[in-house]
């Protein structure tokens, strides 16, 4: 009984503090104003993005220069295949097979980020695949995990430079 009353008081104090936090967050930024020419700046930047995307989609899929590096549909940060120094003859090689369970949603998203792709890339893929952005991240992560390229060359999707 005494413990219950103590817990109630502690909860009340915690709630009071959280209400105070709400007020303080609001007060901290209540007078913040965006710059007056923001609309013009954003419109100009938006138009630039439209032009860039159009230019990217016009480039043949064979190769594309993005951010100073040639992008040809595979992650720049993905490890390149390495030929073994000596032929492997005895040890069994475990490779993913189509029958294996697909990566979970969250793990697939982590794989997507591990390849240095970002939210913007997922947005473009979501448009292409007609899914929401989260689904696009997961789908892309599963493809990458499977060693398959993303349809980047056509759309300008590329991982960020490390």
């Amino acid at each position: 009984m005494v413990n219950d009353r103590g817990n109630d008081r502690a909860n009340e104090r915690a709630n009071d503090w959280e209400d105070g936090l709400r007020r303080e967050l609001g007060l901290a930024v209540q007078d913040v104003q965006a710059r007056e020419d923001l609309l013009g700046v954003v419109r100009e930047g938006g138009r630039r993005r439209v032009r860039r995307r159009r230019a990217l989609t016009a480039v043949p899929a064979a190769g594309l220069v993005v951010g100073g590096a040639v992008w040809a549909g595979v992650a720049r940060t993905a490890p390149a295949p390495v030929a073994p120094a000596t032929p492997v003859t005895s040890a069994p090689v475990l490779e993913p097979t189509p029958s294996e369970a697909p990566l979970s949603f969250e793990v697939a998203i982590q794989v997507f980020y591990a390849h240095h792709y970002e939210y913007d890339d997922a947005e473009i893929l979501a448009d292409l695949w007609q899914v929401d952005v989260s689904e696009a991240k997961a789908k892309a992560g599963r493809l990458l995990d499977d060693g398959q390229p993303l349809p980047g060359a056509e759309l300008g999707v590329s991982p960020e430079s490390p």
């Binding site: 965006a34 923001l38 700046v41 954003v42 930047g45 938006g46 439209v50 995307r53 913007d120 947005e123």
Partner: peptide, 18 residues
């Protein structure tokens, strides 16, 4: 940070414009 906040907002609004 105010400077980073302005960058972030500009970036998001440009994408929304598109």
């Amino acid at each position: 940070d105010r400077g980073h906040a302005e960058d972030l907002l500009q970036d998001v609004l440009e994408r929304m414009y598109v």
